[in-house]
Amino acid sequence: MKKTDITIAVTGLNAIDSPGPGISVIRALRESSYYNPRIIGLSYDTMEPGIYMHDLVDKTYQIPFPSAGVDNLLHRIREINKKEKLDVIIPNFDAELFNFIKLEQRLSEDLNIKMFLPSLNQFEERQKSNLFAFGKKYKVKVPKNKTLFSLSEIPLIENDFTFPLVVKGKYYDAKIAYSREQIAQHFEKISVRWGLPIIIQEYIFGSEVNVTAIGDGTGRTVGAVPMRKQYITDKGKAWSGISLDDDKLLKITHDIIKATKWKGSLELEFIKTSNEEYYLLEINPRFPAWIYLAVGCGQNHPDALLKMALGRKVKSFSKHETGKMFIRYSYDMIVNLKEFEKISTLGEL
């Protein structure tokens, strides 16, 4: 069967030591059973490795940082679309999602570019600062947390928390603090980078288990694969992980997707305690960097998401292979300065 040609723009090309999901998503898309994709990379930084991976990414354009706002992003996408005729965009960064969600309708109606994203409400509800309320509403266990807007509020939390505790940024970063001074240090570092508020979270002892899943927006789970990290880098990222057979975890996942009518991809991060309780730590409203493991287990989530973005019906995956591992590796590409010059000065490569 001849596959259908399609042009897909993908962000998150930073396949570095704390990787974005873009490259894994692209590998999955290239294995689509139905589509033959032309991949347009969208990059923020000239050093994102994906820009230079020409066997995976056909062409890359620089786009404005999320902090430049929706209008700037739209303007740039219009320019890119004139040359590339995009069919679908798959954004992969937490920090950019707000802007893309805001643009979803306009991109679809004005430019016929499709996405498959959670609604603004779904996106906001699972923000780290709202997660505690989320847990209450949907009856999921969530570690106690509190948002801080200034350093002076630190003494106020001491009655409610014991050390150690976790200090988190609005979008990224999580650091463990063992003292009031450390909270302040982490607060300053994280807030400079990611703004306010800062979230203080109860530290739960146990092992971390994650699920990558997709919902079709009606409450149905299209696919879900649980994984435990086996080896963690000093940045807290998985270096290797293994797919699990954990019905309880899958049930929690299905329940969350059903209750929220989640639309699009999501990664659920849990702590499993020694007495088999699951605490939800975070919901990331996008594919995780390890999404290719799901493909390896027989569930090609990016391909399913692509089909749903284009309005096609997809069947739910009924099983996944357990005991499959992923082991991440790094690789030194040789890049000509000319290429760096091009992306730096012309904003495309």
Binding site: D45, T46, M47, Q62, P64, S67, A68, N72, S344, G347
Partner: peptide, 14 residues
């Protein structure tokens, strides 16, 4: 200086 992490010029059009 072209250093990593700087705002790219596609970033600030308005």
């Amino acid at each position: 200086l072209l250093n990593s992490g700087a705002m790219n010029k596609y970033g600030t059009r308005t």
